[in-house]
Every structure is written in structure tokens, then in C-alpha cells.
Design a protein around this nucleic acid. Sequence first.
RNA 1: GCGCUCGUAGCUCAGCUGGAUAGAGCAUCGGACUUCGAAUCCGAGGGUCGGGAGUUCGAAUCUCUCCGAGCGCGCCA
Length: 606
Amino acid sequence: MTAGSPPSHLFATMLARVQTAAGAVLGSAADLARIVVEPPRDPAHGDMATNAAMVLAKDAGLKPRDLADKIAEALRADSLVEKIDIAGPGFINLTLKAHVWGDALRAVLEQGKQYGRGAIGAGAKINVEYVSANPTGPLHVGHGRGAVFGDALASLLAFAGYDVAREYYINDAGAQVDVLARSAFLRYREALGEAIGEIPEGLYPGDYLKECGEELAKDYGDSLAKMPEDEWLPIVRLRATDMMMAEIRNDLASLRIVPNVFFSERSLIEGELPDPFATEEAPVRPKDVVETTIAQMRELGHVYEGRLPPPKSGNLEDWEDREQTLFRSTAFGDDVDRPLLKSDGSYTYFATDIAYHKSKLDRGFLSLIDVWGADHGGYIKRMKAAVSALSGGKADLDVKLVQLVRLLRAGEPVKMSKRAGDYVTLREVVAEVGRSAVRFDMLYRKNDAVLDFDLAKVIEQSRENPVFYVQYGHARGHSIFRMAQAEMPALASEPAARLEALKMANVGLLTDEGELSIMRKLALYPRLIEAAAVAHEPHRVAFYLYELASEFHGQWSRGKDSPHLRFIIQNDPETTVARLALVQGIVTVLASGLALLGVDAPEEMR
RNA sequence: GCGCUCGUAGCUCAGCUGGAUAGAGCAUCGGACUUCGAAUCCGAGGGUCGGGAGUUCGAAUCUCUCCGAGCGCGCCA
């Protein structure tokens, strides 16, 4: 990192000190990596608790509580520690010196937007592939969830110190894009004035191809209509997929999602195509890297000619026992070996996907994340097997499955027309409820849980609606600033000057239990970022923000019954400034987390 | 039949990768607006963590086995 590594945060500091203490007691043989320092669920157990003694007791040949005594003794003189208790089966509970929470708050103000930025990524390259829908129609809400998840995960990883690529794999090589081309060709003939009647079974009936047909008619006149299919098809296909991708890019942009790389599947087979969507590099690839990939795997002994047992279920009518080109994925944990060539000699989707993932490895990524729809779960083992085979076990692939989205309106399922091609698009949903609501709602859930998306609830302005609740917390902070400015003009008129003033606050005046609790929460943010990034779980950020907002709203309301707890105290500027510093800390972290999620942090709610 | 993802309060969901007495919101009941924003807050009730067995100091979390839901199971992508 050129800007220097981020400052270590309180929990990382304490973990290191506990590890040092344990190491001093046990010697170098101890496995210190298993030690955890975490906030106890019960505040009565102090500020931090560590399991060090329980985890290491066996190796040490001591009872946990006896070991805890020794470790505690080594920590007794620590500059941050006020009090140490041994409790339960051998927890070491630490109560920290009073000033550490004020120090933590000051760190938030000092670091601003950088607060929480992590170093665990250490600049390592990581590749996040998401959406990757066929360019055969508009995105629907399920695609949107994958897109939002992948984008937020990428942002989270970047914040945690990784060098992140956001990638969209364009499935523009299969039979489905040929169907798209034929569908567009029909619209083209329609645009030329031909009566096309009903769209035949098997073609895409949606109206969205009409524009494509009209453009083709404008650019080519009737010349395409005179060609045989094998001549017009590539032309129409390219135009249609280009137009579809332009639409998809727009839809993604409306959610503030901008992949760095749009990677064309077809380019793996046919060589490099002009790629109008690449926003970054355009990797140069030789013609048919799928073939060379397969050849390389064959040399390594991972590919062979053989037969497969018949599938266990489904109809066996089409089943034909034949020798084919297979990837020995069973050697890497898969259930059966997987074919790479179809009976007509063309590549299976898996074959090109292997070549695609090899390209990621070739570009220096050892850490790969794929975000897929839940219906692709059966594909995970073979893809992991392929990555393992290609990298010699050096690269890691984590596949995040995104469950389906059930669209509701006020609790009732949204009626989807049976007619193919006519479904609720992502664009319609974003237009109706807005980007922030869509994004937060989709991230306020684990990726592998089914999501009920209620169009009525996500725009509701109440506690029931988490996005509103968190945004309101941020707005409430600014509302307090506005009020403070009105009542104490001397404080500061504009944000930058105010921030400087608040950095000087005497945060030692923040001694109320509610205030301390908020400061502890703020101190937890960097640790949360690390944990969420390691787990590849952006939803944790959303839940954290909700909890922080909740504590803030609570503290605010406490001031109603107890006026001395209000943020603004009329004739006590010193206390007021200290509390405004706390508000600044809250606002900073709320804004930081919301930014990671791609959700607006408004200064007032309207 | 096999594989994957799940099963936590009446409902919708968290649970910090094995920690202490399992937590929120909604719903229900009871409170708080002369107020820096009541768009909010405080309190109460509500649980065999699907069932059972195992691993160990300790299990909602890990293993096994049943039950139930969803998804998938050459030549679709």
C-alpha cells in the first residue's frame, strides 16, 4: 500500500498482546493462531474476553483456569488493561482503561473515511465474478441480487486491503445467443414490413428485440434477408448481443455497479473480438484458448477419452453411450468426470468456463470468487476441481450461491405473466423503489437464504424498513449538527472546520453508559470489516449498521427523560463538543458502511 | 437413488467460523411527544435452535443418522 498500512485497531492490538503474553507463558511451541479476542456478549464480563487459556490448556498440560492465571499475570502490566478477571471455564475477561474508548473515537475522527480500512488483504489480487447472465434479455431481480452482492463484496474486499477485480463473464457463445440472433432476425424482417405473426415456439418473444430489428433494417436494408443463415447469423448475433449488453450495462449502472472487465466467452473460442465494454484492460488472447487449455490439461493427465455411466435420473431416451473427451474431475473431489466436448464436436459450457478460469489464473489471481444463482449449485465441485487442476492446488475458488428472490407487494406475490419473456425486470424494480432500497434490502440477508423482496415495504419509512432506519440515523446525526450550529454559532459553520474543532474535543467527558456503548461499537468496526471480508459476507456490514443506528436512536431518546444526556447542552459547550464528536464518529462510520453497500447516506430525510 | 443449500420465537431473520444466561424486527400487550426530528424510544410475554446420537472443558455452530423444504443430476447456459 502506497499510503502506508492502516493503523492497527484496538482488537488487533489486544489480540497481539494476548498472543505475546501466552507465548511468554507457553514458549514458542504454542499454537497462538487459535486465540480469539472478542467483545463479550454480557457487558458485565468486561470490555474484551479471550479464550486463550481454554484453547491452549491441553498443549500446556494445565487446567484452563490455572493457565488463565499465568496469562493474566503476564498481561497485568499492560498499558491498556485496567482489570483482569478469570471467569467461567477459563475466560480471561479484560476491562480496559477508561481512556481507550475515547482514543478509539478520536481515531474515527482522525482517520475519517479511512477508518476501518483493513490490511488483511495485504494487496493480494482477488477476482470477483458476478452476474454473468446470458445477454439474451433484460436482467431480472434474481440477477440483481447477484450483482448487488458481488459488487458489495468487491467493495468490502477492497476496503479490507485486497486488490480487487470486478468481472462480468458474457455468455455469448452458446446456442442461446443463436436463438437470440434468430429472434432478432425475425424482428428485422418485421421491421422490413414483413408480417411475422406469432413468434414461433423456441424463440424469444419479448418486445425488447424490436429496436434491434429496426436498427438492422436501417443499417443493412434488405441485404441480410437475402443471405443464407450462416452468413447473416454472426452479424445479427453480434449486433443483438451488443445491444443486450448495452442494456445490461445500463441496468447495472442504475444500481451503481460498474465491472472492470467484461469478458466474452466467445472470445475464448474465436479469439479477440472488438470489446466495446471493456472499461479497463482488453486482454489479448490467441484464437481458441479452449483448445490449448484442454491440450495442457491432457498433458498433465487430467483429460482422457472414456465413457460415462448413464445419468441417474431424467429421461434416458437421448442417452447414448459413447466415448468422449472427459476431465478427470473425480481426482479433485467431483462425483463423476465431466465431458468437455459435445457430440457435435463443439465445446461444452464447462470447457469454455475452464478456459475462462484459467485466464483468471494467468492474469495473476490466486483467489477467485464466483457469484452464482442457487440453481448452479451442482456445478461447484467440477469448477473447483478445474481450478485446482489448473493451478496445481495453489489457487482458491470460493463460490457464493445467491438464493432466489421472491417478489412481493404488501405480502402478496407479484403476479408474473405466464407468457415467456414478460417478467418483472430489474430496471422496473429499481425505477419503482430506488437504488438504495434495492441494494440494502438485498444485502440485509445472507446470500444463501431465500429473499422476500416486498416492493411496498422497502419504501416504507419506519423502523420495519432497515434501510430507512439506518439512513435516518445518518440524517439524524446531521440534524444534530444543524441544530448545534443554530444554537452555538461559535462552534463552526462549515463541516471541515467543525471536524477540526471536534477532533479537539475532551472525549473524556463521555462517561454515560450509552455513550460508552456506542464508542465500543465504533471501535468494533475495523474488526467487523476484517471478519466480513474474510468470510465473504457483506451482509454483516448491513447488520452492524443497523445495530449502530439503533444504539444512536436509543441514546437520542434517552435525552428526553434525562435532559443532561442530550447531545446539545445549552450552557456547557465543552460537553456539547464532546458529544458532537461522538455524533461525528457515528456519522462517519454509518457513511463508511453505507458506501461499502452502495447505499446513499442522506443528510436529511424528506 | 446421489449431490448441494437450508431448517433458530406466531411471522421475517441475525448469531462475530466451538464460547459464558441463544438475540433483533414485525405481530401481541403496556408505557413515553410543551422536547436537539415520536420517521423515534422504553418495557413485558414468547424457544425441546427440525428429531436423535456422537466429538470435548463447552455445540445453534463440527461428525453421523433420520424427518422436512428448495435446487441440481452427459451432448442447457
